[in-house]
Each structure stands twice: as C-alpha cells, then as structure tokens.
C-alpha cells in the first residue's frame, strides 16, 4: 500500500528561521564532537604518559593546524553546551512561545559570543 499523503520533510524545501539554524547547528556541532572526542582522548592519553610526552603534545598543540582543530572543537563544545542548556530550559516550559523562541535564540547567541570570548581570552 502506497501512502499518498503529502510529506514535506524534504529539508531542501523548508525555510530556515533563526531558531531552525540554531537547532541544525546543535546537530552539526554534535556530529563534530562525536569525532572530536576521539581527538581529545588521543591527546589526553599521550599527555598523561610522561613529562616528555606531555611537552611533545604541548608543542604540537601550539602549531597552527592543531590550534585551529582544538579551537574548532572548543567552539563546538561551547555551542553544543549553550544550545543544550536552552533545550533543557525549553523542556521546563521556559521560552516556548513564538516570541520566546526568538528572544531565547538571541540570548543564546549573545551567551555563545560571550563565553567564547572569555574562553579564548583565558586559554590563550
């Protein structure tokens, strides 16, 4: 039996308001972190072996490539964390209205920029 009802889950035809972009980025950052965790575990394992290995990792992480890669993972962590907190607040019924969703997304972006700024300032 073929279902003839119209289905519009074709993501190429759906409009993306700000909240939808925030949501898709939550997923993209999540997929990125799924692989990023492997990179973090790898460096953690090496860095805990010995002082020489620790220093080797420190030098490696100072390079442009690894700094960019770790910076990207850090951005994904911060974004995924803040978007996740917003998600939990929505679960509690906070910011569920149409206006609330817009305000919430704006607050989320402000928090993302602030936390990223603080993290970059403190870590580098």
């Amino acid at each position: 039996m073929k279902d003839k009802r119209p289905v519009n889950l074709d993501i190429t035809t759906i409009k993306f308001p700000l909240a939808a972009i925030a949501s898709i980025l939550h997923r993209i950052s999540g997929i990125g972190l799924f692989f990023g965790v492997g990179i973090l575990l790898y460096f953690l394992q090496i860095s805990l072996r010995s002082e020489a290995e620790f220093d080797r990792v420190a030098v490696l992480l100072d390079g442009l490539l690894m700094t960019s890669l770790l910076g990207l993972i850090l951005l994904a962590v911060i974004y995924h964390l803040i978007a996740g907190i917003k998600h939990l607040l929505l679960d509690l019924g906070i910011g569920e209205s149409k206006q609330g969703a817009k305000t919430g997304t704006i607050i989320m972006w402000i928090m993302f920029v602030l936390v990223t700024g603080v993290a970059v300032g403190l870590l580098w």
């Binding site: 953690l44 860095s47 805990l48 010995s50 002082e51 620790f54 220093d55 403190l122 870590l123």
Partner: peptide
C-alpha cells in the same frame, strides 16, 4: 585549566 594558569605535567597528572 583556569586554576592552573601554567599547567605542567605534574599538575596535569595529579588531576587525572
């Protein structure tokens, strides 16, 4: 990371 401004191996190792 914030508590150990200049993280060295021994501080790092003792945390874990």
């Amino acid at each position: 990371f914030l508590l150990h401004a200049d993280m060295d191996f021994h501080a790092w190792k003792s945390i874990f």
